[in-house]
């Protein structure tokens, strides 16, 4: 991390970039937060460790038209999102200085909580250069857990540790993928219709409509969102009609279909722990099956499958009931 921090300080002090988008220390050792730094002094708080899961590419939309370059730290999976935003003309590549940061998988504090770890005061072994176990210093004494046990679910199905777009790469990456990303989708596809419905009803009923999934999603960057109300002031916020209430997740998944890079941020930020990536991944799987393999954000020039067609596309009735034949 020190190498990365030194390089950022250098970039700001020699005037190459006007600001840096990265992470700063949070109020707890496991929740560093995205931040914008514009002076060397501010960079004192810069941090990059295993808990820096946030995808910073969406923040580049805000700074696209600011004066001077903006340096941004992007993990391998975040660079797919950035590429997709280039494709959608939402970010300015010329104005961005992309530092590809190494990644050995990001951590999920919930996994530690589930293992009964609480009262955390400090955490060791989560640095990007580190090896071996993670040690939690708690008020009840030290507890250790393997790094791989703490990984976010999305890191177990990592797309790969190559940066798709960058100006320079700092730090080593370590492959974390150990299962197929469509396994969960296939498991649901194999259920009966009633089981599927019961599963999703149970999951979606937990939703509190906090909109965190929408706000964090790099693909959900429309200037005017369908879920924003046209009414004024406080009415704007209290806007859940029953249609939105019930269909929010299908609509959101459909809106990002063909553009979702599967960065997994929606599931990471969900305060209710709803596996929202299951919707996006189903669309990705279907697009792969029906129209040929497509990874959004891999190539900023590629045509999105939903704004394209061939004369021989399959008919909608062939899309359903495939499991039954």
């Amino acid at each position: 991390m020190q190498e990365l921090k030194n390089r950022l300080i250098q970039l700001i002090s020699d005037g190459t970039v006007a600001r840096v988008i990265g992470w700063k220390k949070g109020d707890m050792p496991y929740n560093p937060e995205p931040a914008c730094f514009s002076t060397v002094e501010e960079l004192e708080d810069f941090v990059y460790d295993g808990f820096c899961g946030a995808n910073l590419s969406k923040m580049m939309i805000e700074v696209a038209n600011l004066e001077g370059k903006t340096a941004v730290c992007l993990k391998p999976c975040d660079t797919y999102s950035f590429n997709q935003l280039i494709r959608e003309h939402r970010v300015n590549r010329e104005n961005a200085y992309i530092i590809g940061v190494g990644c050995r998988g990001k951590l999920d504090i919930e996994k530690a909580r589930k293992a009964g770890i609480k009262g955390i005061e400090a955490i060791e072994g989560v640095g990007i250069e580190g090896e071996g176990d993670v040690t939690f210093k708690t008020i009840y004494g030290d507890k250790a857990m393997a790094y791989s046990e703490l990984l976010l679910d999305r890191c177990h199905v990592c797309k790969g540790k190559d940066h798709m777009v960058y100006d320079e790469v700092i730090g080593e990456s370590k492959d974390t993928a150990d299962s197929d990303r469509f396994d969960d989708v296939k498991k649901i596809e194999a259920m009966s219709s009633a089981e599927k419905f019961a599963y999703f009803q149970n999951e979606l009923s937990k939703c509190i409509r906090c909109n965190a999934c929408r706000n964090v999603c790099p693909a959900c960057s429309c200037r005017k969102c369908v879920f924003d109300n046209t009414k004024f002031d406080s009415q704007q916020r209290a806007n859940v009609d029953s249609f939105e209430e019930k269909m929010f997740h299908i609509i959101r998944a459909f809106h990002v279909a063909g553009r979702c890079t599967d960065c997994g941020e929606c599931s990471r930020v969900c305060p209710q722990g709803i596996p929202l990536h299951l919707f996006n991944r189903k669309f990705i799987k279907d697009i792969d099956d029906f129209y040929g393999e497509f990874q959004a954000g891999k190539d900023p020039e590629a045509q999105s499958p939903l704004t394209d067609f061939t004369f021989e596309d399959l008919e909608p009735k062939q899309a359903v009931g495939r499991g039954e034949n």
């Binding site: 419905f197 697009i287 899309a319 359903v320």
Partner: peptide
């Protein structure tokens, strides 16, 4: 095609 497949999935 994608919507119908999604509805079936749900």
């Amino acid at each position: 095609a994608l919507l119908f497949s999604m509805l079936e999935y749900m």
